[in-house]
Design a protein around this nucleic acid. Structure first.
Lengths: 198, 198
DNA sequence: TTCAATTTGACCGACTAACGGTCAAAAATT
DNA sequence: AATTTTTGACCGTTAGTCGGTCAAATTGAA
């Protein structure tokens, strides 16, 4: 037997090594040869670990989202009210510390829209599903504890997707600057209506 | 002097001639040569009218959105309540008659996300701005006429973007089927809360 | 008025540079 | 020696360019 490399880990390593150039130039201004160089491997090796150029972005999105998910979990623990928890959730779209993830996410969404039948999308479907269940459970808790009117649950899917909507609209029209204000304004308005006053 | 063609019109004609193959195969599975053939022009001519392959999609989006805007205007005239008007607005995301526009819009958004600094995006910023002002004015009318609580206006940007959010999420995760239900459910919930009862 | 010379814009497709992806051979490891 | 891993030269394809062709329009001399 010859050496067995940890293929899963090496795939992650290569993807992470490509993060900086992808953020700097964008995937479509980057050649596979350049990515390979960034990762200190030959071009052929890239195809040992990724089926296509695009899959590097999918892998990166996966890694960064798992990381984000951990950070978010801890952050939410420190928050008392449902309103604050939901705001923490929507931090994804404007907090400076998630900048890199957002940029990768943007490229991921673009690639996903262009390659609708790609099997790599399945992970994202599951990943989104998990985030949404989580989001919904936060609202449900608020309802259960008597802080929120139960009809907020009918808005959960809308509230969950609004971040994507604002984020993508803002990205496409180059008006990303006041995204935080818009998001928080929206959340506050909903909660002002839905919170049960003592 | 030689023959003078209407460059603006011919650009539209070429773009429209490419609509079918773009819808069928998607831009990235289509070569410029194939597009040129669809439009019955030489490949070089394509570059007389478009700066890049991508610009054909931008032009198509522009054309179809102007068309949609007309249809929508008439449709809204036939609706009595603000709720119905807003639903008509969000038809964009699920009504069968806008299928082609949606597909082109999806490709447009993807390209816009990948080419963030593209000057061609400016038209879209303006186009979106106009749609949003329109959307907002519908809500404002509802408030003015005493049908809606005025705090619905704080939700207008969120309500406007939710379509994009749901649409793109659904596209990426291949769950486009029940988009109408989700959208209408969201709109109904908001209006049930915000409508002033007699 | 006629018509040939001239000018001009529209059109084109052969060509080029560059890229994504492949594969046979080499290197590395045990 | 056997087997896995790595590699970069190679290949086919494609976006975009560029020099040239052509037909219509203009000019102006007869």
């Amino acid at each position: 037997m010859a050496i067995i490399v940890d293929k899963v880990q090496k795939k992650k390593d290569i993807a992470l090594a490509c993060k900086k150039p992808i953020l700097k130039k964008g995937l479509h201004n980057l050649t596979v040869a350049q990515m390979a160089q960034s990762a200190n491997v030959g071009k052929g090796t890239m195809y040992e670990y990724f089926r296509s150029k695009e899959e590097v972005v999918f892998e990166l999105a996966l890694i960064l989202m798992q990381e984000h998910s951990q950070i978010l979990q801890n952050a939410i623990l420190t928050k008392k009210t449902t309103r604050e928890k939901i705001k923490e959730f929507s931090n994804f779209f404007y907090n400076a510390k998630y900048y890199e993830l957002r940029e990768i996410y943007k490229q991921f969404v673009a690639l996903a829209l262009l390659h609708p039948k790609d099997e790599m999308l399945e992970f994202h479907a599951k990943s989104t599903e998990r985030y949404f269940k989580w989001f919904e459970s936060l609202l449900q808790e608020g309802v259960n504890s008597g802080d929120l009117h139960s009809n907020i649950l009918a808005l959960s899917e809308g509230m969950f997707c609004i971040g994507d909507g604002l984020f993508i609209q803002s990205s496409v029209t180059n008006t990303l600057n006041n995204l935080q204000e818009k998001m928080e304004n929206y959340i506050d308005t909903i909660f002002d209506i839905m919170e049960i006053k003592q």
